[in-house]
Design a binder for these strands. Structure first.
Lengths: 126, 126
DNA sequence: TTTTATCTACTAAATATTTAGTTTCTAACA
DNA sequence: TGTTAGAAACTAAATATTTAGTAGATAAAA
């Protein structure tokens, strides 16, 4: 999977959030100062070339949608990151953030109860 | 804190790992094809300008060392990332990776036992 | 059918990043 | 003291990324 640059990722976030969009929809949601229409359009075309985005044509206009889910991208990205920053150890990562957020042991237990539930629920669809 | 580019981060990883280094030490550790001496040297100078690296001068030669720890950088980087990819929720992140690595509930319990221990140990130095 | 609006595709300029050659300085040594 | 080796600093070329203008196409409106 190709990497995304900053600008590409920013646009991709809108795609993931909105699922089906026209260029103008994205621009509408962007904060000022808004970029030129063609800027966004160009970035989307790059995303298409990289295989992240597809489109349906409605006459001359394209409606764009993600081909790679946020989950898939996150997975790949985090693999690299985990490797570099937590020596590939899930434990280290959790531990880092728990300390970071100054979670107490009981905070963590509470959190883990919820995570456990999610794992159990999710276990049939992977 | 400034962001690091890819090339800068790569060199920074050596600094973090080796703590105190001369340029040639870094190059010695780098895999082939090795970059030119001046390439590494230039990147380090950029890192100094960005405040990530300092140096002690031994005559004409500089021994470089990190000014910003891997932990500090990770913290900042992950804040942004968490925000974009896990809506700032620690729970979501743990859950994501637990599912990702196909951890069972008992795997998770085992892991959390260790994390809990670390938190308890670490609580006096933050 | 002609005009208008608006969209994508094409193109290119501006900017940022990466890579490395050249110069200059200094220390070590003859 | 002069010469040499090796390092940082300076400079610049190559490459990648970002931004946006212009042209050409098409649908909708007149």
């Amino acid at each position: 999977m190709k990497e995304l640059t900053k600008a590409e990722e920013e646009i991709m976030q809108y795609l993931w959030e909105m699922e089906q969009v026209f260029v103008k929809d994205i621009i509408a949601r962007m904060p000022s100062p808004k970029p030129a229409y063609t800027t966004v359009s160009t970035i989307i075309r790059i995303l298409e070339k990289k295989g992240f985005v597809g489109h349906k044509a409605y006459g001359k206009t394209h409606e764009y949608y993600p081909l790679i889910s946020k989950k898939e991208y996150t997975r790949n990205f985090m693999k690299r990151f985990m490797n570099n920053y937590f020596s590939n150890s899930f434990k280290e990562m959790v531990s880092f953030f728990a300390k970071e957020d100054k979670l107490s042991v009981s905070d963590l237990d509470e959190l883990m109860k919820e995570v456990r539930k999610e794992i159990e629920e999710g276990s049939h669809d992977g």
